[in-house]
Simulated scan of single mutants.
Amino acid sequence: MSDASQKTSDALLDKAGRVREGEELDVARIDAFLKGTAAGAGLSGEPLVRQFAGGASNLTYLLSYPERDLILRRPPFGHKARSAHDMLREARVMQALRPVYPYVPEVLAICDDHEVMGCDFFVMERICGIIPRQDLPAGLSLSPDETRRLCLSVVDRLIELHSIDPSASGLESLGRGEGYVRRQIEGWSDRYRKVRTPDSADFETVMQWLAANMPAGETAIRVVHNDFRFDNVVLDQHEPSKVIGVLDWEMATLGDPLMDLGNSLAYWVQADDDPTFLALRRQPTHLPGMLTRAEVIAYYSERTGLRAQDMRFYLVYGLFRLAVIVQQIYYRYAQGQTKNEQFAGFGKVARYLEKRCLAALAADGPVG
Rank of each mutant, 00 (worst) to 15 (best):
D199P: 01
P240A: 07
P240W: 06
V233Y: 05
W209C: 15
N232I: 01
F228L: 02
D227V: 00
V224Y: 03
V234M: 09
V206G: 09
M207G: 03
M207Y: 04
H225R: 04
M214H: 09
R222G: 04
V234A: 03
H238P: 00
M207T: 12
D227Q: 00
E204A: 14
R222C: 08
F203Y: 14
A212M: 10
G217W: 04
G217E: 13
V234N: 03
Q237I: 11
Q237L: 09
A201F: 00
V223L: 09
H225N: 10
F228Q: 05
H225M: 00
E204N: 13
I221K: 04
D231M: 01
F228Y: 14
Q208Y: 05
N232F: 03
N213S: 12
A220F: 11
Q208N: 14
A201S: 05
N232M: 02
I221P: 07
A211D: 15
D231N: 09
N232A: 01
N232E: 03
A201L: 02
S200Y: 05
A211H: 13
Q208D: 15
M214E: 13
D202F: 04
A201P: 01
A201T: 02
V233M: 03
S200V: 10
F230L: 15
L210T: 10
S200C: 09
E239L: 07
D202K: 04
A220S: 13
F203N: 01
T205F: 08
N213H: 15
V233S: 04
F230A: 13
N226D: 11
P240C: 05
W209L: 14
H225C: 00
L210D: 05
H238Y: 13
W209V: 15
S200L: 06
N226I: 01
F203I: 03
E239D: 11
H225Y: 02
D199Q: 12
V206F: 10
D236F: 01
V223K: 08
M214P: 01
F230H: 10
M207W: 05
I221Q: 09
V223A: 05
A220M: 12
A216P: 00
I221W: 07
F230E: 13
T219C: 15
P215T: 06
P215E: 08
P240F: 04
L210M: 13
P240E: 06
H238K: 13
F230W: 13
E204D: 15
D227I: 00
V223G: 02
V234D: 02
H238G: 12
D202V: 05
H225E: 04
F230Y: 14
V224M: 06
F203K: 01
S200F: 04
A211P: 06
L210C: 12
V234K: 02
T219L: 10
P240D: 04
Q208L: 14
R222E: 07
L235M: 14
P215D: 07
H225I: 02
P215C: 08
